[in-house]
Design a protein around this nucleic acid. Structure first.
Lengths: 344, 344
DNA sequence: ATGAAAGCCGAAACCGTTTTCGACATCACA
DNA sequence: TGTGATGTCGAAAACGGTTTCGGCTTTCAT
């Protein structure tokens, strides 16, 4: 391994001058500088980031927290896209990303401690369980943190326009003629509250009275929870004409569950998803859903995080990223008379 | 930030002793040790990994190379599962993972240089383009490298049993009565050669003469390439009764393309995929495919990599991980007389 | 000619750890 | 009582960089 000292020797100058030459300091003669740079390249010099970090306190590392309880982390259809965008944007700015975990090497360790050990410059969080004690601790620390889809006074946030998303989807259903709509909502977290707000808003505007049975508890990205939700709904005397699921994955399993119970989609029940990931296009007919702009969410998160860490500050600005309705083939106007139960 | 010096001061001993106490050296009195550990915890000491790395030359960091040309990296249905397993296993052993990229901070940089800057302890590679000059350079370097699904004299490898996989799938098709089978193979890489071997082997055993038109060039995980492959096949005077695709994603788009052209699957043409990822279960009927053991592939890769880096050695042992046939509903016995062209 | 300013460079401290090696005390044993 | 072994500790160097600050030249206006 060749160090700046080796270069200094070869150039007949001091290591300080080499360091300055490599870092574009102004107080080094243009000729010396070029000589040093040339020699450095010749000798195959590669700076040691650990050494540099030790004195500059910058690791050029962004931590990523992606602990999804239900679907294990990286394989998540929606989050993996966000993560990809975070990664690309970070790399473009010269940062590497590192996953933050509890439980490193068999030793239970808080997220914050993990970050401190590695001297992470900043963190992007996009997990479901923001109420986790350790996540809160991290957000309240003095490490710059950007969260995706959560609202906290301590951190900056990139928000997908969930209210508008579910509002538009509901509105669309209503415009097709649906009035008996069920929203199978996800985990009881911030995003869910937001979405329920959007759901109710659309109903209200259409003067459709909201009743408790329009909400069914389910879970994001959990196959069985959504199949169970469907099973529960099918026990009712009067079936809804449309069901909205918390994400596309859930919607697809929901559709399968409906079909396994002899219900035709969309002829008997219309279905809407959320996320707009590619699996929605793979099934037939294509899933009606709300597309979240994963690329922008990820990019904005990275950029905001970098901006914060470079200014060594924290703030709690919020950036909202728009969503888009993707009409598919899983919805149609309800065929049966309202208020009349379709079979069973 | 509290350092070992602070602890030394508080304990009335030297930093050397503190370091030793923290690292379980034998030449420190049990009482002093406990006093130091207690104080360290009290003061909230967190070791600085950069400083440690500087003197030990271990970063506890494993680099991951996942550059998939077609489908962008992390969002890949198959690779993301492997990656998840690599990550989990690495973390269990106390290692963090970091993505290796060219082009860090706008500066073109070789993979090897990226690793050297960060002083990565070892690398796991699972990308498609192993022939890339930079990937080769990395494999030939003295950094411990483990590759997934590639064969090189320079590195250790974890291999999925591709030959057996495609052999079994083909064998299954033949056992259903198919003789006109097309294999739409993926990128022209090592894995593809392997699979073609397995394909031919199954034909040979069944005494079905191999002809060139049984192979169609396509690409892994590329929607359009597979749709195009289907379009090409459909131009033939005599259609095959079964098509095998290079992965599940491709198979699903292949099926959609077939259906868009009025061909019934599986009634007119049977279809097989490869990978065994969940999307194969989402469509109706469920995709017949070969399941690769992504979890084991990832775990083995991590473990092998750690074993190598801890012994500071390289070798080129190969570990093969088995595969499994998942019979679905996209295959059935061919209905039409062999040798007769089904319509058109 | 002179003093100030600007340009260029290097000594040395510093970042937070590990690790070697020698010093010292204590102990056991002949 | 002397000797060697054993146990415990710390000084100091090393890891590979960055950065401050002061000193020396050179330039330039007066």
């Amino acid at each position: 391994m060749v160090t700046i000292y080796d270069i200094a020797n070869a150039c007949g100058c001091s290591s300080a001058t080499v360091s300055k030459a490599l870092n574009n300091y102004s107080d080094v003669n243009i000729n010396t500088k070029e000589r040093i740079l040339k020699k450095a390249k010749e000798m195959g010099f590669v700076p040691n980031l650990q050494a540099r970090a030790l004195s500059t306190k910058r690791t050029w590392n962004i931590g990523v927290l992606f602990e999804d309880k239900s679907n294990s982390g990286l394989t998540h259809y929606y989050f993996s896209q966000v993560l990809q965008a975070v990664k690309e944007q970070a790399e473009e700015k010269g940062y590497d990303i590192t996953f933050i975990s509890k439980n490193l090497g068999g030793v239970e360790m808080s997220y914050l401690e993990h970050c401190n050990r590695r001297n992470i410059d900043g963190v992007v969080i996009a997990c479901i369980d923001f109420e986790d004690q350790q996540v809160q601790q991290l957000m309240e620390s003095n490490i710059p943190v950007v969260v995706i889809d959560y609202d906290s006074e301590h951190v900056s946030a990139i928000m997908s326009d969930n209210v508008r998303g579910i509002y538009e989807l509901t509105h669309y259903m209503i415009s097709l003629g649906h009035r008996d709509i069920v929203y199978a909502y996800g985990h009881e977290v911030y995003v869910t509250e937001e979405r329920i707000r959007g759901f109710k808003k659309a109903l209200e505007e259409a003067k459709i009275p909201f009743t408790e049975d329009m909400l069914v508890k389910s879970r994001y990205s959990e196959k069985q929870a959504n199949i169970d939700a469907v099973t529960e709904i099918l026990k009712r005397d009067q079936l809804p004409t449309a069901i909205l699921f918390p994400d596309d994955y859930s919607a697809i399993w929901g559709i399968n569950a409906l079909r396994n119970n002899g219900i035709k989609v969309p002829e008997e029940i219309s279905v809407g998803g959320f996320d707009g990931v590619e699996i929605g296009e793979m099934i037939f007919p294509r899933l009606t859903t709300i597309r979240q702009n994963t690329t922008r969410l990820g990019k904005e998160a990275s950029l905001k995080c970098i901006q914060l860490l470079e200014s060594k500050s924290k703030d709690n600005t919020k950036i909202t990223v728009g969503v888009e309705l993707i009409p598919g083939g899983t919805c149609m106007a309800p065929r049966l008379l309202q208020g009349k139960s379709p079979r069973r």
